Amino acid sequence: MFTRLRPARVRGVLLLAFALPVLAAGCGGDGRKSVYKVRGQVFAANKKPAVGAVVTFNPVTPDPKDPARPIARADEQGNYALTTYAEGDGAPAGDYIITITWPVPKKTPFEPEGGDQLVGKLAKPERSPHKFTVSKQPDQEVPVITLP
Rank of each mutant, 00 (worst) to 15 (best):
M1H: 14
M1L: 12
M1S: 12
M1V: 15
F2S: 13
F2Q: 15
T3M: 11
L5S: 11
P7T: 07
G12P: 10
V13A: 14
L14N: 09
L14S: 10
F18Y: 14
F18P: 07
A24I: 14
A24L: 13
C27D: 05
G29P: 13
G31S: 11
R32N: 13
S34Y: 03
Y36F: 14
V38Y: 12
G40A: 05
G40M: 00
Q41W: 05
V42Q: 02
F43Y: 03
F43E: 02
N46C: 00
K47N: 14
V51K: 07
V55W: 03
F57I: 02
F57T: 00
P59Y: 01
D63M: 04
K65M: 11
D66W: 04
P67W: 10
P67Q: 07
P67N: 02
A68W: 08
R69L: 04
R73G: 02
A74F: 06
G78T: 02
L82F: 10
L82S: 06
L82D: 10
L82H: 01
L82N: 00
A86G: 03
E87S: 08
A91T: 07
A93T: 04
G94N: 07
Y96K: 01
T99G: 12
I100E: 01
T101N: 08
W102Y: 05
P109L: 06
E111G: 03
E111W: 11
P112F: 01
L118A: 08
V119E: 06
L122Y: 11
A123F: 02
A123I: 00
K124A: 15
P125E: 05
R127Q: 15
F132I: 00
F132A: 02
S135P: 03
S135G: 06
Q137A: 14
P138V: 03
P143A: 09
I145N: 03
L147I: 05
P148T: 05
